[in-house]
């Protein structure tokens, strides 16, 4: 698939092609960190002309944006990705990259489960723990590369900015920060090269695949919860609903569908109905079932 062709389409076409497919949004500071992820998930460049480079594989639902270094850039890039591709609320947001560590653990992959921002004192607790796959640690997001590792923590320059923004795109439990230790008291960050940074990430790909499988299971649960079925979307497209009626319709439709999984709301049948009439139609059917209500 040639993604450069896709970007020449109108906004709505990008929307309909992509927005429902993307389930993983990777936000990565450096190209050297991003390359192993891009290759591992077969992503292709979406466009070189954007504010930030975006890579995509809409078949497996992965998107990646390269933010540049720093917390503000990380948050801004995540926002750009969310808005530009109209990412749905059930997608997972993942910040991955290298980090300093107070101990000698070069090459180890950690999940950051507590992220504090040195600049503001704000604290975040991203994600659900995957303790069967990798170790967890606290992380401090700092403004400059760290030389002093006195506190027992990981040190990076992006995660807090990323967490501050991304948790509001889906939820805290679908926001993740993973870091590979690149430097520490005995390993200076000055010795890192693009190649060595890519290698650090690449060496952790088996674990990264395991993590993405685990995240996918959570995304599926959340998608099932909030996804509006096509049938209901069709009705919403065809008939004009006020904002309030739209919400009432969606909630009633879901209850109705839960009770009558084999029934359908065909647009053709209801095209002449008002929103209220459609909602009442479903409520009436639900009410007619109360005497024989089964809990299963």
């Amino acid at each position: 698939m040639n993604y450069c062709n896709t970007v020449t389409m109108g906004g709505n076409e990008i929307d309909s092609l992509i927005r429902n497919r993307i389930e993983f949004c990777w936000v990565v500071a450096l190209r050297a960190e991003a390359v192993p992820i891009i290759e591992a998930f077969n992503m292709k460049i979406f466009s070189n002309d954007l504010l930030y480079p975006i890579y995509l594989n809409q078949d497996n639902g992965h998107a990646l944006i390269i933010s540049g270094v720093g917390a503000i850039k990380s948050g801004a890039a995540a926002t750009f990705l969310k808005v530009y591709l109209s990412i749905q609320n059930y997608a997972a947001w993942i910040n991955i990259g290298i980090a300093g560590y107070f101990e000698d653990a070069k090459g180890e992959l950690y999940q950051a489960i507590k992220v504090s921002y040195q600049d503001t004192g704000n604290t975040f607790f991203p994600g659900m723990r995957f303790s069967r796959i990798l170790k967890s640690e606290v992380l401090r997001t700092v403004g400059k590369p760290q030389k002093d590792f006195s506190e027992p923590a990981l040190y990076d320059m992006e995660a807090a900015g990323f967490c501050e923004i991304s948790t509001s795109f889906s939820c805290n439990e679908l926001t993740y920060v993973f870091k590979v230790v690149s430097d520490g008291p005995n390993h200076s960050s000055n010795l890192l090269t693009k190649k060595s940074v890519s290698n650090l990430i690449e060496n952790q790909l088996p674990k990264i695949f395991e993590i993405s499988d685990a995240i996918e299971k959570l995304v599926v649960v959340e998608k099932k919860r909030i996804h509006i079925p096509i049938e209901a979307q069709e009705i919403l497209k065809t008939i004009h609903f006020s904002v309030t009626n739209r919400n009432v319709f969606i909630n009633t439709y879901r209850r109705w569908k839960a009770k009558f999984p084999d029934k359908h709301l065909a647009v053709s049948e209801f095209a002449m109905y008002s929103p209220k009439q459609i909602i009442n139609h479903m409520e009436k059917q639900l009410s007619s079932e109360t005497d024989s209500w089964v809990i299963q």
Binding site: K224, R225, I226, N251, R254, R255, W256, K257, A258, K259, E283, L286, S287, T290, W293, V294, I295, Q296
Partner: peptide, 10 residues
């Protein structure tokens, strides 16, 4: 539980 039969009851 938007899709759950228990909460579908009117």
């Amino acid at each position: 539980y938007p899709n759950d039969q228990f909460y579908a009851f009117p």
